[in-house]
Design a protein around this nucleic acid. Structure first.
Length: 159
DNA sequence: GCCAACGTTGGC
DNA sequence: GCCAACGTTGGC
């Protein structure tokens, strides 16, 4: 079982929104590195939800991967902001969809929410994607990184 | 709202 | 295939 971290803007879709709408399609990813990580997700993997572009950016809760990478419907919708005509072309050509979305099921809030600033200060996380890769919206956590976060959050990070 | 750190686009 | 211009993300 792997741990992942995903970012979401709470004004658009918060952890509470996920709780109410669980399970929810995690759509809208339009970055190839993030997409590749979405492809690697396995059923039962635990996903840390991080609120971004808000007052206190922080890891706030947990979800679990409950359905694997589906074609992202928002990429096929011309009315949608994330529309990408190449998605339609891929599907018409019988190719794997360019943009995908897993389904995530709400688990729980962290007992202790973890502001990003606090995580960035931790030497154990200095080499993590979280600290090193700006703007990446989906990333894996190593076992040691997950253990560090589990300790800080006073949570097992287990389903 | 600023701006650094990216990723993407398109002319050549 | 290079790279300048441009757009976006997201912490601060």
């Amino acid at each position: 079982m792997r741990h992942w971290l995903v970012k979401t803007e709470p004004d658009a879709f918060s952890l509470d929104d996920l709780r109410r709408e669980s399970p929810a399609l995690w759509d809208g990813v339009r970055n190839y590195q993030a997409r590749n990580f979405l492809r690697e997700m396995q059923l039962g993997d635990v996903v840390l939800i991080q609120h971004s572009s808000c007052k206190v950016p922080a890891v706030v809760g947990l979800a679990v991967v409950s359905e694997l990478a589906l074609p992202d419907p928002t990429a096929s919708d011309p009315e949608h902001k994330g529309f990408d005509p190449r998605q339609v072309a891929d599907i018409d050509a019988g190719k794997p969809p360019r943009w995908i979305a897993p389904r995530l099921s709400y688990l729980r809030p962290l007992r202790t929410t973890l502001p990003i600033a606090r995580l960035k200060a931790r030497p154990e996380l200095a080499d993590s994607h979280l600290v090193r890769r700006a703007r990446l919206s989906v990333m894996p956590l190593s076992e040691s990184e997950a253990a560090c976060i589990a300790s800080l959050a006073d949570d097992t990070l287990l389903p």
